[in-house]
Amino acid sequence: MEGFGVNFAFWTLSAVTLGAAGGVVVSRNLLHAVLFLILAFIGVAGFFVLLSAEFIAMAQVIIYVGAISVLVLFAVLLTPRAGRDNGETAMALPALLLAIAVATVFIFVVNDTNWTTVAKSPELATAELGTALLSTWVLPFELASVLLTAALVGAIMLVRSREEEAEDALA
């Protein structure tokens, strides 16, 4: 991948994504942290476009930016007396050391390995992804729908209030 546009997009997206992830770490207000998280999701979606995975990028915008971040915002707003503080526990220093160690190992391995790469993007149409999902990987595809249904029912059961349960018991 070369050319000014691609380079500019890559470095801008890197700065936005990693900066937003850093914002999640340092912001003291939990709501600000959620907003930084949304920005990080958008940056990752930009990377997906750069890696010629347009469908995944759209799915990322719809599912992460549209659904999961709203879910996180709801969870923050539904726990009002818990405080908006986004502070660290006593494990912050060991966690920081572990994170730095993990980053060091990953970056060393990434740069030390002699990757066999192709220069040109494998031309992938979204139609191919759809065909693969409904032919080769149709069983995991159906299992995913079962998993989503189970998660949906489980989430509804978990957040039901006692009054609602009592009403259902009477009915």
Binding site: L18, G22, F47, T89, A95
Partner: peptide, 20 residues
Amino acid sequence: LTVGALLFSLGLFVALSKRN
């Protein structure tokens, strides 16, 4: 891969250290 590794490490730190 480097961006992915850095993003993963930041996420790891958030997951291990946040009180909320």
